[in-house]
Each structure stands twice: as C-alpha cells, then as structure tokens.
C-alpha cells in the first residue's frame, strides 16, 4: 500500500500543491498554518477537486487520467480536526454510519472490535454533544475505521485536546499504525507530535 500524490489547486490568489510518494506507516504532512495542509487532505478525500495532478493509493487511481472518484467511492477514512460527529445521532449510530454503507466484503473491523480497540463501550448510547473532546475524537476515529477504509487521513486530531488527552489519542494512533497496519496521512504543525508519530515526513512551506 502506497500513496502517490501530485496535486495542485488554486485557492483565491495562492496556489496549493504537493508532490510525494509514501509507503506504509504514518506519513506526516508538516508545515505552518496556512500552508494548505487541510486542502491537500480534502483533495485526497475527494472533497476538493485539484486543478491538475493525480492521486493514487495502492493500485487504485482516485483522481487523474480522466478519473475523479466521488468521496464515497474512495474508501478513505477521514478524521477531522473537530471530530465532526453527527449531532442528531447517538454515538452508536455515528460509528455505524459508514459501516452500514460499506460493502460487507470490504469490512475488516466489527463494531465490537472497534469499541474494544478504542475503549468507548460506555459511550455508545450517548449523544455527541455530551462527549468531551477526547471522547469525541475516539468516536470519530472509530467511525472512520468502521467505514472499511484502505487508509486513514487525520487532520490535526490532537489540536483541540489537553495534554493528557493528547497522550491518550497519540497511543491510539500508534496502535492504528503498528497493530492495524493502516497507512495514515497525517497533518500537523506540531514538531514534537510529528517526530514521535511519523514514519515519513513531508515538509510543506507556507
């Protein structure tokens, strides 16, 4: 499994672009705020269309060569900075949202496994608005894992957490990287975080 990404996109009067290949493990896109890191993840996820370039993951072309797969067909799990849980669904329904939509043959994790992996069994019947930042981020990670993804995108998943919660979630991310062996594209502006988590580092300048 590898990332082969070469994209460019104009947003207003500036141009955001990146070109890299990366293998297994956690690939960190590292750079200052405003370098367009989130835009790059959005392009990989299919939420933002590049002006030119290609996005290939493993042997699948998601964008380029006349192909532009919609986000729902890309099999990518996206963990957003702010969790972005569905406020009108309980935790269980949030977790299962993508799971139910995935092809049963593609699923590689069951609800129980995800719940155990993340230690969120006690949250299943809660509403998202009652969760702490760390709890919400665990549920968001679980929701992305249960969607049967081939890789994970993480957009500063630690930025809204206090130090203790950061440590918690970092451990979770390391276990996704090492135990589940899921390739991760990880965006951050925090050097210490990236040094600890990254297998490969892609530096972006602002």
């Amino acid at each position: 499994m590898s990332f082969d990404i070469d994209v460019e996109r104009r947003l207003g009067d500036r141009s955001i672009g990146v070109r890299f290949t990366a293998g297994a493990g956690l690939t960190a896109l590292f750079g200052p705020s405003g370098a367009g890191k989130t835009s790059i993840l959005n392009m990989v996820a299919g939420l933002l269309k590049p002006d030119r370039g290609h996005i290939r993951i493993g042997d699948r072309t998601l964008f380029g060569d006349g192909i532009d797969l919609p986000p729902e067909a890309r099999r990518i799990g996206y963990v957003f900075q702010d969790g972005r849980l569905f406020p009108h669904r309980r935790v269980r329904a949030n977790l299962l949202y993508g799971h139910h939509l995935a092809d049963p043959a593609d699923r590689w994790m069951a609800l129980d496994e995800a719940v155990d992996f993340l230690g969120i069994g006690h949250l299943l019947d809660r509403w998202p608005h009652g969760l702490s930042g760390g709890e919400a981020q665990r549920v968001a990670i679980g929701r992305a894992l249960l969607r049967a993804p081939q890789c994970l995108l993480m957009d500063e998943p630690l930025s809204s957490l206090d130090a203790a919660r950061r440590e918690d979630i970092m451990t979770v991310i390391e276990r996704i990287r090492d135990t589940l062996k899921l390739p991760i594209l990880y965006v951050s502006h925090d050097r210490a975080e990236v040094d600890r988590l990254a297998t490969q580092l892609i530096a972006l300048d602002g």
Binding site: A45, P71, E72, Y78, F80, R84, G98
Partner: peptide, 11 residues
C-alpha cells in the same frame, strides 16, 4: 462540513 463527513463515510 457534516455533509462532507458523510460523503467520506460512503454516503
């Protein structure tokens, strides 16, 4: 952005 999240989840 919630709609975008739903799309990435396969909707």
């Amino acid at each position: 952005r919630l709609e975008g999240a739903a799309r990435t989840l396969g909707a």
